[in-house]
Design a protein around this nucleic acid. Structure first.
Length: 109
DNA sequence: CAGCTGACTGTTT
DNA sequence: GAAACAGCCAGCT
């Protein structure tokens, strides 16, 4: 029995919504929290439906702190603008002080 | 019904 | 030390 698979997207949305202000997390962190550390790609894929779910996808980046998913946003630098607006320093699609702003659900929750 | 794609990560060369 | 390859799971065509 793997209920995670049923609400995989739902869980991703729930965790993403719980990301505190001025913090960011990685797909792997969320995937790991869901029990599917190998399914980090699924987390990003789930973000495809993040629009309309109140999910701050701009706070979710890859393990290197790169805004890999910015291509899925409306504009090209919209994601970076949003993060900077929250106090997260971003430089050329890469988050500065990533280790400081990194937010791990398994630890914070 | 079967195969491909994908907002990633970890290991190896 | 940096770059390249393979693995993984679930949704979509």
């Amino acid at each position: 029995m793997k209920p995670e698979t049923l609400n995989f997207f739902e869980k991703v949305y729930q965790v993403a919504k719980q990301i505190p202000y001025g913090r960011v997390t990685s797909y792997g962190a969320i995937a790991k929290y869901l029990g599917a550390a190998k399914s980090a790609r699924m987390v990003g894929y789930a973000m495809n439906g993040s629009v309309g779910k109140d999910v701050p996808a701009h706070r979710v980046v890859n393990r290197k702190g790169l805004l890999t998913g910015k291509h899925h946003f409306e504009g090209t630098n919209l994601m970076q603008q949003l993060l900077e607006s929250e106090g997260v320093k971003v430089k050329d699609n890469q988050i500065q002080d990533f280790n400081t702003v990194f937010w791990e659900p398994s630890k914070e929750l």
